[in-house]
């Protein structure tokens, strides 16, 4: 059936539930779905994690190899994050170079890790100006059940926390763990007709006007934020989202992640 029609019917249902203070899957507004994280799932990768948030499934892999630093940061390691929305994950994804959605997801994931200083990139310098460790995070979405953003951020940080630098393979000494300093966690909420719900499912994401992703670090400070979708938010809504997101992030961090 025409998905625009489906979405209008769905929207109606979700709005009506929202008015009663309910969500379609019975969760509370600020309740996240069940999270599963499994690390070390890909032996060939230097770090990897398989993440599930509800129906959403993805694998994040970290590859690390020596390379040339950027000329403007000769003594700093390189971090490159990419994300692909491959057609395997959803009938709505098409093959080809990443479009704006994938680019945005990858860049926001990257921003959280970079800006929180999660990786001590200075420690990744081998020879200043010539050789540094390059860290590549690649995220493959396997099943789009909504809120890929949080899953991607979670997968990346979980994979990084378990990653080793393959120094032996390149004759650069012994293998050591990747120097990590912080654990950023991303929490996303959407606005559905004025109600703010966290960790949106696919249906909710589709129906929502606006999405806000809040990435906070270990000390509870903000490391990154992104509003997405063409609606608008009031400052009150934003402040509420930020407050709850920071708390949620702390819960997730305590439960699933440690340095």
């Amino acid at each position: 059936m025409n998905k625009e029609i489906v979405s209008i019917i769905q929207k109606d249902q979700l709005y009506n539930l929202m008015l009663k203070g309910e969500r379609v899957d019975g969760r509370a507004f600020d309740e996240t779905r069940e999270i599963k994280i499994e690390t070390g799932v890909i032996e060939k990768a230097e770090g990897s994690a398989r993440v599930e948030i509800g129906d959403t499934k993805l694998i994040a892999g970290v590859k690390i190899s020596p390379g040339t630093p950027f000329p403007d940061t000769p003594d700093v390691g390189v971090l490159i994050t990419s994300l692909e929305l491959i057609p395997l994950a959803s009938p709505e994804f098409e093959s080809g170079p990443p479009r704006e959605n994938a680019v945005e997801l990858a860049r926001v994931t990257d921003r959280g890790i970079r800006e929180s200083g999660a990786i001590d990139l200075k420690k990744l310098c081998i020879i200043e100006g010539e050789k540094v460790w390059m860290v590549f995070i690649d995220i493959h979405v396997l099943d789009d059940g909504g809120n890929i953003m949080d899953a991607a951020a979670l997968g990346s940080i979980a994979a990084l926390l378990t990653a080793t630098m393959p120094a032996e393979r390149y004759g650069l000494g012994e293998d050591t763990p990747l120097p990590m300093r912080d654990i950023p966690v991303s929490v996303t909420a959407v606005d559905i007709g004025g109600g703010i719900v966290f960790d949106p499912s696919l249906e909710e994401e589709r129906v929502a006007n606006t999405k806000l992703t809040v990435i906070s670090n270990q000390e509870g400070a903000l490391a990154g934020m992104q509003k997405s979708g063409n609606g608008s938010l009031s400052p009150d809504q934003i402040n509420h989202m930020v407050e709850v997101a920071c708390k949620k992030a702390q819960d997730i961090r305590e439960k699933f992640l440690e340095i």
Binding site: R111, R114, A221, L222, M225, G231, S232, C246
Partner: peptide, 13 residues
């Protein structure tokens, strides 16, 4: 109404 919001870096609440 806020129609664009992005942030990177370090800010407390």
């Amino acid at each position: 109404k806020i129609t664009l919001l992005q942030m990177d870096g370090h800010l407390t609440e």
